[in-house]
Nucleic acid binder design. Structure first.
Lengths: 362, 362
DNA sequence: CTGTGTATTGTTAGCGCTGTCAATCTGGAT
DNA sequence: ATCCAGATTGACAGCGCTAACAATACACAG
């Protein structure tokens, strides 16, 4: 009797009675079922009679019950945590990624745990392994450039941990979300050519952050497509930061035959180019057109506002996280991961603002 | 014998043997002590013989053991999670806060859980309460402007949840970290006056984000201190964003007797002012000096680079998190929270760049 | 030596939940 | 009616750790 009837199949809890702390057995008692059935409902397990599920749901609502993630993590094999590895030089990029990931996590009942390698960390793969085993995350979101380190991907594959890459560069199998950097970059150059520019400079990004290469490809592709020559002296090396853009700008503008337009592989560097130009007495866009890439808030805070490519980073991270959660769910049900192309492409539209205009008349 | 010697006081675990998963009993076995002693060492409890502690530490190192946060959370009364509530319009501010908080969390063995109210959320206090009870965080970090909502603070006090505020505005008791907005703002205006400016405009920030008021106070204080009149027509309302700064800039510059310098309550708005000025044909700093506040990366990406006040946000958030962790520890030991002034002040030095110069000669 | 108090270590019972497996119920087919 | 497969539900044993208490070891006064 003390067992079966007093207050439901599992009895009442004895501790922390004052700690307004609703547990699964409170719900079970109220719904008149066992805690296991409540657990089934929570986890959407099959074979629960609709009427029963309904009663449980009502009890959950009434008590405002929320399962304790610690207990779930301890008992089950999931930690309900997703890891986000970042090593991104751009706060803005990272910040928007976090927002997107957070949103998807909230929706899916996951928590987000962020981690970045120490500045002097040389063995990224080992770092990631340590992080994974310590925090027991269920899956990993890899933002560039960490998602392009083969050693890390190998390690993850060996452990068998689900992961999704944001903006991956290689053709490695596995889930990912990205934009088509190449054609977006080509679109920028198309735009400049349509305005009448014939000598168009390019500022490359950080050599390790390979979106740089794709954007350079797009730049050259558009040039070739319009029958314009590729002149390597018009391609300056940058590092994706303001200062390097500034340097590159000076380098390009002091050429004997300088370009009439400069396309920088991101907004920060475009801002640097603009600073260099204004310093050297060029007016934008009258004497020089400038275009960037990413559409960070910066691009709207420059004067004149910058023509750039909008990258839907928040959406991409959100979708990446959703994909990751789906993958984790499949794995938990021992379903095979689907084959085939697994890269989700996002639109990256050109945003024409005020830094691009026809070249000065000869 | 089976109890005492076979494999240590607690025996060996039976499940998930392959899952390279080191638990507290593995450590106990290797060190030849009970799991409770290991627990004592981990939690720095007193009354462990140094030699024993040493053996345990060695075992922990050998096995690369890390306690499972879920299990700790479930068994103890701590969740080892700290919540960060944000509703900040500035990605940069928030991002730097996150970095600082994350760093302190890592050091203290805590995880960080971020949360922001829904855009249309009206009852902030209830939202915070729900978040706290759902995620079972041990403490809360309140970034502006959420840290200034009395209803939220009341609710938190009622629950008895430790919290620390970043940049609080009122004199409410409780821990917090901040800069002296007023004197920092005054220092900016001092600087402008020293350069020879006599008509100095001010762009106010968002009325709800009360740092705005403190900065305005500083502006007026400096003016008064130097015997200059306070002219309300020189004070334009802004919203802390670029667009509002642009508007305010136009408003001030189209005055019959426009200012020779404009101090905006943050960098974004200063960028807006700069845009407005350049649009209207004013050269900076020759015709107009501009100063901002916050020292966001933006301030270095503008041309000319912006004179502003450096706010050590990352450090502030780091320190705030440390304070929070200390407070949680005290509470867990049932120690009383210390009385007295609990606001930690940080330096916010003026960074003079290129947007401020003597006013044009009459 | 013995007794007493304190420092140190161990034992045991959960924390709230899920996984396993057994028990019960249901709806036909016989 | 009777039986059986499948659907539905429940009992119970942990997950890895901490809290409360128990047990032992040790130190030193009497």
């Amino acid at each position: 009797m003390s067992k079966a009837s007093a207050s439901g199949p599992n009895g009442t809890r004895k501790h922390r009675p004052a700690k307004g702390h609703v547990t699964i057995s409170d719900v079970a008692d109220l719904a008149g079922v066992s805690i296991k059935t409540v657990s089934r409902v929570i986890n959407h397990e099959p074979n629960v009679r609709p009427a029963t599920a309904e009663r449980v749901h009502k009890a959950i609502q009434t008590l405002d019950y929320l399962p304790d993630p610690s207990a779930r993590g301890l008992a089950g094999q999931q930690s309900w945590m997703i890891g986000l590895i970042y090593e991104n030089p751009s706060p803005n990029y990272l910040f928007r990624s976090i927002l997107g990931a957070l949103q998807a996590c909230n929706k899916g009942g996951y928590a987000l745990s962020m981690h970045s390698p120490e500045p002097n960390e040389d063995d990224l793969a080992r770092m990631v392994e340590r992080f994974v085993s310590q925090s027991r995350v269920d899956g990993l979101l890899l933002t560039p450039p960490v998602g392009d380190v083969p050693a890390v991907l190998d390690a993850l594959e060996r452990i068998g941990l689900p992961c999704v890459r944001v903006a991956p560069l290689d053709g490695r199998p596995g889930l990912g979300v990205c934009i088509d950097d190449r054609s977006a970059a080509a679109r920028v150059v198309d735009h400049l050519i349509e305005l009448g520019h014939r000598r168009i400079g390019f500022v490359k990004g950080h050599p390790d952050h390979g979106a740089s290469d794709a954007r350079q490809d797009g730049y050259r592709l558009s040039l070739m497509h319009h029958g314009l020559p590729i002149d390597e002296s018009l391609e300056a090396q940058g590092q994706f930061d303001f200062e390097s853009g500034h340097q590159a700008g000076i380098q390009l503008l002091e050429l004997k035959s300088p370009p009439t337009a400069i396309f920088a592989a991101n907004d920060e560097m475009a801002a640097g180019v603009m600073q260099a130009a204004q310093q050297l007495g060029w007016r934008i866009p009258d004497d020089l057109s400038v275009a960037g890439f990413d559409d960070t808030p910066l691009s709207r805070s420059l004067w004149p506002p910058l023509t750039t490519v909008h990258q839907p980073i928040r959406h991409m991270a959100l979708r990446a996280t959703e994909l990751l959660i789906e993958q984790i769910a499949r794995r938990n049900r021992d379903e095979p991961q689907p084959e085939g192309p697994s890269l989700q492409l996002f639109d990256a539209p050109l945003v024409v603002r005020a830094t691009t205009a026809p070249p000065p008349a000869r």
